[in-house]
Design a binder for these strands. Structure first.
Lengths: 129, 129
DNA sequence: CAGCATCCACATAGATACTG
DNA sequence: CAGTATCTATGTGGATGCTG
């Protein structure tokens, strides 16, 4: 490993982009990472402003990607809980550097951030050292 | 740092998502990271399949974000060279974990990857150990 | 060579209303 | 409660042709 050059194919990024480019996907992954398990309306609150359709769509895709797990309980009223799969947990870890990078360069974003997203919990990542 | 929980605001992700969600942005950042400096048509080849409009648009945004640098030389024929800024270099580093994560879970992607993107250099990241 | 202008196609996301 | 059904608005990317 001395000065060697390793090649990592960017191809998987195709799939990654499909996931992360969805505006809410990373937020959902993070929210589930922070709270362990959440229900549909719980996610709605946590995310602040997502429409049920968008949430529903995104959840299905994340599920199809194997990043989150859906557990439905046959109760009345119905209960469905979402949580991260191991893969999802790994993804959440993998985006931390990206977050940190982003955090170091907040130019004008700061204002918009504070005004629009203050208090939206899904925007915080909780990292256990 | 023993079991402490640090909070990182996801807000900057807003800006990040705007950048990385663009299908080609990360590929461009990576291509420039691999090759140091590239010209417009050089990028076209390196990226394999991008349209000049899309490349032009994306370059402008990356430039506006301060991730790449544009140098134009008053020659005939005209020459313009693009390279990463320090911030761009940092971004490239920050996405490596994401790449590695993606690389460990290539399910069906593998086929499509090989058939569609084999030989597209921008899909490889070159990492100096 | 390095783009810009224009038009078009598709995907994503929101609002709203309704259902098992 | 946990979604689905529509409809719409916007944005992102591609094709093609033209210009400094």
């Amino acid at each position: 490993m001395n000065g060697e050059v390793s090649h990592i194919c960017f191809c998987p990024l195709e799939g990654v982009i499909d996931v992360i480019s969805k505006k809410w996907a990373l937020l959902i992954v993070n929210a589930l990472g922070n709270r362990e398990r959440l229900r549909f309306n719980g996610l709605m609150e946590e995310l602040g402003g997502i429409s049920p359709k968008t949430l529903s769509d995104t959840l299905k895709e994340l599920q199809a990607e194997g990043l989150i797990k859906r557990e439905s309980f046959a109760e009345i009223p119905p209960r469905v809980e979402y949580s991260l799969t191991q893969d999802g947990v790994e993804l959440r870890k993998a985006i931390v550097p990206l977050l940190k990078w982003a955090a170091t360069r907040e130019h004008g974003n700061k204002e918009r951030c504070a005004s629009t997203y203050r208090g939206v919990r899904a925007h915080r990542i909780e990292e256990k050292a």
